[in-house]
C-alpha cells in the first residue's frame, strides 16, 4: 500500500549546491493571480524547497493520515467517509477551492471543519473532531490537498453577500491595544518588514499550513488567533462566526491563487 511513496527519482533531483528542493510541483502552480501573491512568493528559497518536496514537507504525513481516515469506519452508523464519497469523487477534487460555503439549513456559512463534523455527527453518528486535533488537521489537509493546483474560487454571491460583507468589515476594523486591522499589515504593508519578519498579503491558499514557528501544521483559525493576539486583541474561538466569515473574505482575497495545501511558512 505504501508503494506510492516510492516515486522514481529523476536525475534532476540531484540538484547540487544550490538546492534543497526535490520533486517540485511548482510548474503547474499559480503563485500570482492579478495583483495577488501567495505567501510562497514571500518565503525564502529554502522554505519553498521544504514545501515543494513531498518527503521534505512534514505535513504530508497528515495527507497520509487523512487518506487512511477517509476509508476508516467510525461511529454507530458503521460508515466511513468513503461509504458515500469515493476517493476519486468530484466533490473531493475541488473542495479545497470552495470553502467556506453557505449552508441554507443553518442560515450561515460553514467551514470545511464544520462540514466534516456535521457529516460525522449526522451521517456516521460519530463524535465530532476537535478543531485543532490531529484527526481534524489530517482530514482537512488531505481533502484540501486533493485540490492542490486548482484556483481558489469561493462563492460570494446571493445568500453569501451579508457574510462576505461581515468578513470584509472584520478585516478592515482596527482592534486590540495596538488598534490595528488585518488590512494595516496585509494590505498597506505587505512586502514590508516588521522587525525581522516580512509581512505577506495574509493569503490562506496554503492552509492548513506547516509553520516553522509551530513545528507542526495548523488551521487558518489558529493563524487568525495568533494575529489577533499579536495586536493584543482577545481572539475569537475556533469556528466562531466571526472567523468563518473572515475565512471567506480572506479566501476571496486570494481568488485565482492555486491551493497549496499543505504549504510551509515561517
Amino acid at each position: 500500500m505504501k508503494n506510492h511513496f516510492q516515486g522514481i527519482l529523476m536525475g534532476a533531483v540531484v540538484v547540487g549546491l544550490s538546492g534543497f528542493a526535490g520533486i517540485a510541483s511548482s510548474a503547474e502552480m499559480t503563485y500570482k493571480a492579478g495583483d495577488r501573491s501567495s505567501g510562497y512568493t514571500y518565503a525564502t528559497k529554502e522554505t519553498q524547497g521544504i514545501q515543494d518536496d513531498d518527503i521534505a514537507n512534514p505535513a504530508y504525513v497528515y495527507v497520509d493520515d487523512g487518506e487512511a481516515l477517509w476509508s476508516k469506519v467510525d461511529g454507530k452508523a458503521g460508515k466511513s467517509c468513503a461509504s458515500c464519497h469515493a476517493v476519486d469523487s468530484a466533490m473531493l477534487s475541488d473542495v479545497g477551492t470552495r470553502y467556506p460555503v453557505y449552508n441554507a439549513k443553518l442560515g450561515k456559512l460553514q467551514s470545511l471543519e464544520q462540514k466534516i463534523n456535521q457529516e460525522r455527527e449526522e451521517k456516521m453518528v460519530a463524535k465530532p473532531y476537535k478543531w485543532e486535533s490531529g484527526s481534524m488537521l489530517a482530514m482537512t489537509i488531505y481533502m484540501r490537498n486533493q485540490s492542490k493546483g486548482k484556483p481558489m474560487n469561493v462563492s460570494i454571491d446571493g445568500p453569501v453577500i451579508p457574510f462576505f460583507e461581515a468578513g470584509k468589515k472584520f478585516y478592515d476594523q482596527k482592534r486590540g491595544q495596538l488598534d490595528m486591522s488585518c488590512a494595516n499589515c496585509h494590505v498597506d504593508n505587505a512586502g514590508n518588514r516588521i522587525r525581522a519578519n516580512l509581512l505577506t498579503e495574509g493569503q490562506s491558499n496554503g492552509f492548513p499550513t506547516y509553520r516553522l514557528k509551530w513545528q507542526k501544521p495548523g488551521s487558518i483559525h489558529r493563524r487568525f488567533r495568533g494575529c489577533n493576539k499579536q495586536v493584543r486583541a482577545t481572539p475569537y474561538g475556533y469556528g466562531s462566526d466571526e472567523y468563518v466569515n473572515l475565512e471567506l473574505y480572506v479566501a476571496w482575497r486570494g481568488r485565482g491563487l492555486s491551493v497549496e495545501t499543505p504549504a510551509v511558512r515561517n
Binding site: R193, I194, R195
Partner: peptide
Amino acid sequence: MSVQFNTQNIRRRDVLALAGTGV
C-alpha cells in the same frame, strides 16, 4: 533591525508597540 513601515498607513506609536511585541 529596522522597521520599514509606511508611516502614512500606520502611526508611529503602532510601529513602536508592535516592535515591542517582537521583543
